[in-house]
Design a protein around this nucleic acid. Structure first.
Lengths: 350, 350
DNA sequence: GTGAAAGCGCTAACAT
DNA sequence: ATGTTAGCGCTTTCAC
């Protein structure tokens, strides 16, 4: 017992009739302990309720541990910037435990670059990995490699249906679509809704917003079976094309209800601002700076948001809890809350 | 230098030509050091960029520190229960630093009990205090006592206009009223709104919802100058009286718009359920279990919520950061986000 | 006023 | 397979 009344490794050693070196061996599964010693020590640990002193441990063990985050590159103002903030917060927290956090980035539109990044991760020999899975099959192969090496991994943003992950932190995608439909239509009976999608949705990339779209469709079909939904495709990099496409949309399939399932609703807002169209009901996702501006100016009525920063830092913490502090996780799948932001509360977000 | 390349107290001692004992004395301002030694050591610390190793420090110093939380008593399902959860989380975090967290409770309707609780806090000689200020003048006196003793304090939920507090974590009350008015009326033009208040609002207690009410009024007066607002008072402990009062309200001053500024909207929801009134637009505050039920059943359209749990644990953390780790706080006034909860996202809250 | 030295609880290298 | 021991960086006596 130390002077705060906590059980120490010495108490355990004494009670088990061994030396603390042996106790330390079973604590860290370093082998070279007889089965019966191990058993006895484990029992004593349980009986006494021994909890290692993290700081003494950290102080004595000089090795430096590392967590790596595998996430997409981004430009300023894009979705993944918020995740980066969370990683930064996680880095600070991790530093308290002498754990460093490194980020490895890839081009989310380029599988080659993703695979290369995966190899880099393995080369780092990390304690654990935080990843946003963008390419299904490459990811499955990658996480198999992690498991083989005894490296744990945590999904953020979206997850795959493999079963080896330590934890998941992200939005419930289906429900977010359902919620979105409710917010978009609340208090009215829509005849038609225009869904703006971006070109790349057409390609075969792993796209978590598919599930969101299904939730949206289900709500509309349940509540407003007569309502038609039109898909309109734009290319985020081609402003010219956006304008002509949307002009054409308002000509041929006008609707007051506009929605996007990814983070780019600001593209629509910019069009509406230029065309001075103020009578649409517009809902989108995620807190990009440009999206917030659109909400403040009234071109977007509501944004459905998630704290991707908290997700990232929670993911880093979950690895620390597991691999450094050796504490059990409260939950494996962590569906984070869906935040509703309008003109009057968006300034207090974050 | 240790093996991670950090400067240690030994490096400082050597560079300053003194022993580490002396360095430690200036580090903790324990006196008994000559002016010139002190000066020299300080200079070396600056030059080398020495950062103490918190864990070695915590390990070596055997003193036990304590944070106390001064909050109202509550029954199961009431507002302060969520705060308690946050305190629990803070306790776990604090334990990592060998800091214990104790809670001292008072009857929020009884100033005597509050003052007695304040005295108990002082007797604990804590490192820092987290408090929800319920009685203005007693609190001002109390925090003066804390300041004199060099004990820092953090407000949660609401704050007073004194200037000695270390930090504040709470909702922006005025804006929450403004937001509430927007949510209640969105997409319509109300002719009148009924505001349900509880009796104790009439008494002179410090009531943070006053500011919220002002925000609400301002919004309505700005946007719907013709709209009348009626106050109806109920007594939460007297169901009979609630029913007769609300019956009377629907007879004499009927309105589809109902709102409460405290956490008790479930009282109204229960009435509506019993009377089978389904065509009102109802908005309230805070995530009590009963309020959530009312949202799920459709008697309340939207709840404006705050993470009082996060506020409490953030408050505890801010004390640890300041008084144990000696790191600067990022922000003093932390206005936390206002969450909007409806039927479709409330199940993912928390 | 200052230095030396004995720990804090744990880890890891070295004996045995 | 197990015990012994020398630290980790810092705090805190105790002696001078």
């Amino acid at each position: 017992m130390d002077d705060k009344g906590n059980i120490t490794i010495n108490d355990v050693a004494k009670a088990a009739g061994v030396s603390k070196g042996t106790v330390d061996r079973v604590l860290h599964d370093r082998g070279e302990v007889s089965a019966k010693s191990k058993e006895k020590i484990l029992k004593v640990i349980r009986d006494l309720g021994y909890q290692p002193n993290v700081y003494a441990s950290l102080l004595a063990s000089r090795k430096t541990r590392k967590i790596v985050c595998l996430v997409p590159e981004y430009s300023h103002g894009e979705f993944w910037e918020l995740t980066e903030k969370g990683i930064e917060a996680g880095r600070v927290e991790a530093a308290k435990y002498g754990v460093t956090v490194v980020t490895i980035r890839y081009d989310q539109y380029d599988m080659e670059s993703y695979m290369k990044a995966c190899d880099l991760v393995l080369a780092e020999k990390p304690l654990g990995v935080v990843l946003a899975p963008m390419f299904r099959s490459s990811t499955l192969k990658f996480v198999r490699g992690l498991s083989e090496r005894g490296i744990c991994y945590v999904y953020i943003d979206s997850k795959l249906e493999d079963d080896g992950y330590l934890a998941y932190f992200g939005m419930p995608m289906y429900q977010s679509g359902y919620l979105c439909a409710d917010i978009l239509t609340s208090g009215t009976v829509p005849e038609s809704i225009n869904i703006i999608r971006i070109e790349r949705d057409k390609k075969g990339l792993s796209d978590p917003t598919i599930t969101r779209r299904i939730g949206f469709f289900d709500y509309i079909n349940e509540k407003y079976p007569g309502c038609t939904m039109n898909n309109v495709f734009i290319d985020p990099k081609d402003t010219q094309m956006i304008y002509s496409t949307l002009d054409n949309m308002f000509d041929t399939i006008p609707s007051k209800y506009l929605v996007m399932f990814n983070s780019r609703i600001h593209l629509v807002a910019e069009y509406l601002r230029d065309r001075n169209i103020r009578d649409c009901r517009v809902v989108g996702f995620d807190v990009l700076e440009k999206n917030l501006a659109a909400v403040r100016e009234g071109y977007v009525q509501m944004l459905i948001a998630q704290h991707s920063d908290q997700q990232a830092s929670a993911a880093i913490n979950s690895i620390i809890e597991t691999a450094v502090l050796r504490r059990p996780l409260a939950r494996r799948d962590n569906f984070t809350q869906m935040d509703l932001l309008n003109k009057y509360n968006c300034d207090y977000y974050l």
